[in-house]
């Protein structure tokens, strides 16, 4: 499965367009991590727990999107876009979408 965020895949040609595919996930970190983040917030700096949380959820969203594309019989997803929104306190929604295509 090829993934790109450009409109085509360099070196390959798009043959069939299968439509938009997307994947999303909402995740929260347990309270212990939230407390650690609050403490870290006094000193400033990177919040490693949240960085991990978001990158894990992004991988999850991508794998859901890939699965949807596979069901459509596509072998690549082009023009992939990410979007993040905070739904509630301490939880984040990751949404990823793209166009499933068949390339050769």
């Amino acid at each position: 499965m090829f993934l790109t965020n450009t409109e085509d895949i360099p070196g390959k040609t798009i043959q069939v367009c299968k439509g938009v595919v997307s994947g999303s996930t909402v995740r929260a970190k347990h309270a212990g991590r939230d407390i650690m983040a609050s403490i870290k917030n006094i000193f400033g700096g990177e919040l490693v727990a949240y960085t991990e949380l978001l990158s894990e959820s992004r991988d999850e969203a991508i794998s859901r999107m890939k699965q949807e594309a596979q069901e459509l019989g596509a072998n690549a997803i082009v023009n992939v876009r990410f979007s993040t929104s905070s739904v509630a306190a301490g939880a984040a929604e990751i949404y990823v979408y793209g166009t499933a295509v068949v390339v050769k």
């Binding site: 790109t4 965020n5 070196g11 000193f43 400033g44 990177e46 978001l54």
Partner: peptide
């Protein structure tokens, strides 16, 4: 840009890459 800069030799592979970070401000 959407297209590569300059002329490139034939592209063998392309993939999506990403990097993320969460940084907080101090008190």
């Amino acid at each position: 840009l959407k297209r590569p800069m300059g002329t490139l030799p034939p592209v063998t592979e392309s993939s999506l890459v990403s990097g993320n970070v969460v940084i907080s401000v101090d008190y």
